[in-house]
Design a protein around this nucleic acid. Sequence first.
DNA 1: CGTTGGCGGTCTCCAATATAGACCAGGTCT
DNA 2: AGACCTGGTCTATATTGGAGACCGCCAACG
Lengths: 150, 150
Amino acid sequence: MTTEEATRARAGQHEEQQVPDGPEGAAEQGFDLFARLCPSREVFAELADKWSLLILMSLAACGPQRFSELQRGVGGVSRKMLTQSLRNLERSGLVLRTVFPETPPRVVYDLLPLGRELAELVTPVGQWTEHRAGQMMAAREEFDAAHTEG
Amino acid sequence: MTTEEATRARAGQHEEQQVPDGPEGAAEQGFDLFARLCPSREVFAELADKWSLLILMSLAACGPQRFSELQRGVGGVSRKMLTQSLRNLERSGLVLRTVFPETPPRVVYDLLPLGRELAELVTPVGQWTEHRAGQMMAAREEFDAAHTEG
DNA sequence: CGTTGGCGGTCTCCAATATAGACCAGGTCT
DNA sequence: AGACCTGGTCTATATTGGAGACCGCCAACG
């Protein structure tokens, strides 16, 4: 299971490639997350933060939501970070922002197919975290104890 | 598939619970990632950053690695962030740090079972990102174009 | 009629964090 | 001797995050 990636990874130890140099077959393959210059790294860096992931999970779990629903749903997120994360998700084509021209206007955010795909991969990570949180907290206490007295 | 979570999520809209008040059945269930005070949130916040995730993926893909192998493998990570992320992963029981008392000493990092579980959930996210990076970059250009002229 | 509240944000300020780079002790290579 | 590798730590600076004020607009409350 891990072996395939291990093989390819050991083979080309993340040397400074960034994107295939082929002029036209480019966009499909050859992105390497481990290369600091690779565009996929930039994309990854924006998605891999707690707020973006929580927002995706909330949209997947609760369906389309308004700005303030999301703010209440994702406990502790500031309006600034919520706006910023939503803009990123929208910009990358993961989330759709719709303004209903009522009075007062309503703004609703929903997952686009791309966002739904990611949310379906990320949700299990969230569930795993909830499930294993106890073990990790225990490990931390043990570690801290060992390194306080030690 | 999403329906179950949707149900539970809509039902209790992330009200300020943090941990079940039951005195003994605590550590197993009742963690809620969406509650700002929940310990699982704290755990999640530390794991959900690009360096920790890339390190986990690298360890899963390439097996046990030394400090400097990891630094070369995870392109662009600074020694400081690498140390810090590894300490976190070690502290939470995801990664094992072993010092071989040779001269010069060798330090090797490897996944513990808990870390392997997480790595196996996270690796698909990384692969998905590599696979979809092209689409997301295209979406960004489109978005930027629309919002520059507009 | 003033006030309070919700809506969907933006703006500003300050504290915390990330990154770059120097430094360190020990050992190897040339 | 001088340069380099190892696994880090320390410092200085750039970037970021969160708290909270502000905005126009509207509805309800007293």
